[in-house]
Design a protein around this nucleic acid. Structure first.
Lengths: 340, 340
DNA sequence: TTGTACGCGTTATCAA
DNA sequence: TTGATAACGCGTACAA
């Protein structure tokens, strides 16, 4: 529809062969400077734009990168993509962005869409439902370069970008205990995913160190739906042995905790202290301001982009090494965990 | 690299001509049911995936839609894309997503990238810097279907999705006045863009109706950078004739206002009432909870997607009508504009 | 009902 | 230094 002039037509205008024009445009050493100049000028004049699909077909290369993430409404993912885009755009790469909405079936469908070469690589943070990973294995076995970030899939041998989940959860929990919490709770989206495990381990380690016994009901698996989560947390908070502190492993659970506390007229931090993994800019403007563990999302995206570009823009690059790249998170103490 | 089997290879496996296989896969009436079944089965077995670029080249159709927006860290845009994706994905379309970061030069570069047919349509919300619109005109003149949402470009004759900016700004301002504001201020990112103008008109209309004279310094053009905005608003709030209310035309200016008030130890809503266009889920959890005008972002994305799919999935569709589709926003009063 | 031949717009190989 | 030709994978007009 909106196609412009083709290489052939451009060549006709110049009384040259298409192959000559192609070489001139690609600055081949075989072409005389005079011809190059003439071609470039005419291409400019006629606003010639190479057809990306002809090129992709010929070169077996899409110049596109697929990003698959569990949700869009989350500052972490938005920042990550900003960082990624800041690197890839300068290399002429386009971003195909997909959200799984934490749904494994949707994730499988999307992954399937990428089996045909539409993207040169996949960058992914898996859904909280992702227990079966056959679709990811297939993607990797097909030879499509794949990177993970945040919610990684350890069974696939490739590079994964994460934060120091264990360490920072440990510190956050220790902070809760220092602020007087005797019965902190850990809120998670799913037990299956990587970050949950690590963050939970850090939580449990701090408890153990402080001699606090782990009560099963204080390690709560929540759901996808917000109102459901609010209900679940309300029940937790009004149970016989309610928690006096919360470490939320993802942002949305901190928000649900605030809502639940509000509904039950519990005061944060007096009745309940809350700290959460979160990249919200406005954590400091909440009522009360929220103590957070914030990940270096933009930098993570940049690093991911750099590794990717290194592989895609040079010939004969090795596969991504099977390693964990750990970027440290930042703990910011605010009112929600202060002693009154 | 990650390419699977081709149509030709699939045909060879079946002892059939590629054209026969192609027709079978496309469910052509010319092919016998028996052959179709055989082909489908083998395609399944060998996990055949058609090459999207060969197809795009042949059909002059990318099956991709470009979305250009000013920023990612904004719930409105995230929700909009969620809504859009919910429609387009079922039709086999992919989303290429770009952020201009409110930078006109970046916007031009991105638009230029789309001149070659990489996307079948463009959905756009222009940057606050976009005064020169030659790049958008060229896109439209090339015949590429283009839709605008939120920040529209009135000079391009196509369909634009907006909210009732004038009306709802008028109501929000009236609300401020009813709550006792004598000198409300209007904060905007740029005077040039469509929504700013409409929202400002509504603001001024309410002022006029209430017999409040317009003071130039209370109609403030802000910047891109957050810390700069905080400074600008601090200056405004500590000027000789400071405002006692703020209508922020975009979310980030409400956040900057909260920060400025905090820094100056002004109490919201006692010293200053604040209301803002915003799609934050957690407006109700801010300190104090923020009165908002929220746009139906997801629905806007859906409607946009439906119109787009109607055009792209059927032959010989007319151009998008040059009209404004107005979806109403919702005014939610919270603590930030309450009388104490 | 199926097969043959061609072209979409590029780039690479080979010949001139 | 330039030109002719083939090929990437697919869909379709035409032939069988």
């Amino acid at each position: 529809m909106a196609s412009g002039i083709s290489l052939k037509e451009l060549a006709a205008q110049l009384n040259l062969a298409p192959s000559t024009v192609s070489r001139a445009l690609n600055d081949s050493y075989e072409i005389s400077d005079k011809t190059k100049e003439k071609v470039l000028k005419m291409a400019e004049k006629l606003n010639y734009q190479p057809n990306p699909f002809a090129r992709s077909l010929r070169e077996n290369k899409s110049n596109a990168i697929a990003v698959i993430m569990p949700e869009r409404i989350n500052a972490f993912f938005a920042h990550f993509i900003d960082g990624l885009e800041s690197i890839t755009q300068d290399h002429g790469y386009h971003l195909l962005v997909y959200s799984t909405h934490e749904d494994l079936e949707k994730e499988k469908k999307i992954v399937n869409l990428l089996l045909n070469g539409r993207a040169d690589a996949v960058i992914m943070s898996v859904s909280s439902q992702t227990s079966d990973i056959s679709h990811l294995k297939m993607l990797h076995e097909r030879g499509l370069p794949i990177l993970f970030f945040d919610r990684v899939c350890s069974e696939i041998p490739t590079t994964k970008y994460i934060t120091n989940d264990y360490q920072v959860s440990y510190e956050a929990t220790k902070h809760l205990i220092q602020q007087g919490c005797k019965k902190p709770a850990f809120l998670m989206l799913s037990e299956g995913i990587s970050i949950t495990k690590e963050r939970h381990r850090g939580f449990l380690a701090a408890l153990k160190e402080a001699g606090i016994s782990t009560e099963p009901h204080l390690n709560k698996v929540c759901f996808q739906d917000e109102s459901e989560n609010v209900k679940v947390i309300e029940e937790l908070l009004s149970s016989e042995a309610p928690p006096d502190g919360i470490l939320a492993s993802v942002e949305k659970l901190a928000i649900a905790s605030y809502m639940a506390a509000k509904n039950l007229e519990l005061k944060i931090p007096k009745d309940l202290k809350v700290i959460s993994f979160s990249n919200m800019r406005i954590a400091g403007l909440l009522n009360p301001s929220l103590s957070t563990i914030s990940q270096p999302a933009f930098e993570m995206g940049e690093e991911c982009g750099r590794l990717l570009m290194k592989k895609l823009t040079r010939p004969k690059q090795p596969d991504f090494p099977d390693e964990l790249v750990v970027l440290p998170s930042k703990l910011t103490i605010r009112a929600s965990t202060m002693v009154e």
